[in-house]
Design a protein around this nucleic acid. Structure first.
Length: 259
DNA sequence: TCCCAGGCGATCT
DNA sequence: AGATCGCATGGG
C-alpha cells in the first residue's frame, strides 16, 4: 500500500508518539497497539507501507489520511509570522489517531521527562509486559499493567509515576474508566473524566484528547509552548484565536521549539 | 556536580 | 483561589 504527502520522519520526531523511529536503511518503523508497520521511501513524499494482512485501512486511519492537511497548513500560513514559519517546517506532519489507553499511559510517563527518557520507559514497559508479536512487543494491556504491580512498573524507570500507572490500569480494567466509550463524550466532559485519573492534570489530559481522541482544537501547553508564548507572543497565548486547528498548530510550534 | 525534562499533587497563605 | 515545593530518574 502506498501513502503520499506525509513525512513519517517528522511524525516520529514530533513527540506525539514514542514508538516510531527511523531505521538505518531510511525506512520508518511504526508500532501501535499490537501492530507493526514499516514505511519505505519510494519517491518524493511517497512511502510504501508494509503491514500485517488486513491492517491497511487501520494504518490509513492511524495516519489520518482522510484529513486535508494542505488546507490546514494554508490556514496556518495565513495566521501570524511565527506560526507560518513553524508550519512551513512541519509540512507532512500528521496528528496520529492513537489509542486512548496507549496515549494515556505514555503521557502519564511524560511528565518531567525528556522525550528520549519517555521512549526508554515505554519501550521497557512493552518489553516486560507486552505480548511478543512478529519481532516486536505489543503495548501492554490494562490487565498486564494492573497485574504487574507498582514495584515492577517502577523498575521500568517511571519513578514516582508508578502508582499513577497502576491506578490508571486498575480503573481501566475494572471498567471505572471506559476509555473507548469516552470517545463519545463532548470535550468538556471528556476532560473532566480524564482529570479523575491520578497523575493526570490539564496538560496530560490535553495530550490524551489531542493524540488519543483526535480533538484537534485542544491545545496542550507544556514548558516549551509556554516559553514560545512568552518569547514570541509577548505572553499572550495565540491559541484561543486559532480555533478548530489550535491543537495542530500547537504541534507545529512544539516541533519548532527553541527556534 | 548541576540542571533540566511535553507536570502534578500536597500544602501553605 | 493563587503561589510554592517536592518528586524519581536519566541525559547533557
Amino acid at each position: 500500500m502506498r501513502m503520499t504527502g506525509i513525512d513519517p520522519y517528522k511524525i516520529a520526531q514530533s513527540g506525539q508518539c514514542f514508538r516510531m523511529r527511523a531505521l538505518a536503511d531510511g525506512s520508518v518503523e511504526a508500532l501501535a497497539g499490537r501492530e507493526r508497520a514499516l514505511l519505505r521511501p519510494v519517491g518524493a513524499e511517497e512511502f510504501e507501507l508494509e503491514c500485517a494482512p488486513g491492517q491497511e485501512n487501520a494504518w490509513r486511519t492511524y495516519f489520518d489520511e482522510a484529513l486535508d492537511y494542505d488546507a490546514i497548513e494554508r490556514d496556518a500560513l495565513g495566521r501570524d509570522e511565527r506560526l507560518a514559519r513553524a508550519a512551513a517546517k512541519a509540512h507532512g506532519l500528521r496528528i496520529l489517531r492513537q489509542d486512548p489507553w496507549e496515549t494515556l499511559i505514555s503521557f502519564l510517563i511524560s511528565q518531567r521527562k525528556s522525550i528520549p527518557a519517555i521512549r526508554g520507559c515505554v519501550e521497557k514497559l512493552c518489553e516486560r509486559f507486552g505480548e511478543k508479536r512478529d519481532g516486536a512487543f505489543a503495548f501492554p494491556t490494562a490487565r498486564a499493567l494492573a497485574e504487574a504491580g507498582e514495584e515492577a512498573l517502577r523498575a521500568c524507570g517511571v519513578g514516582y509515576r508508578a502508582p499513577y500507572l497502576a491506578d490508571a490500569a486498575a480503573r481501566t480494567l475494572s471498567g471505572a474508566l471506559p476509555l473507548d466509550e469516552m470517545g463519545g463524550l463532548p470535550s468538556e466532559a471528556l476532560l473532566e473524566r480524564l482529570l479523575t485519573v491520578r497523575g493526570v492534570g490539564v496538560k496530560v489530559a490535553s495530550c490524551v484528547m489531542l493524540y488519543g481522541y483526535h480533538r484537534l482544537d485542544v491545545c496542550p501547553v507544556d514548558v516549551w509552548i509556554e516559553r514560545t508564548i512568552q518569547a514570541d507572543y509577548g505572553g499572550a497565548s495565540p491559541f484561543p484565536g486559532y480555533g478548530a486547528n489550535a491543537g495542530i498548530f500547537q504541534q507545529y510550534l512544539f516541533m519548532d521549539r527553541g527556534a
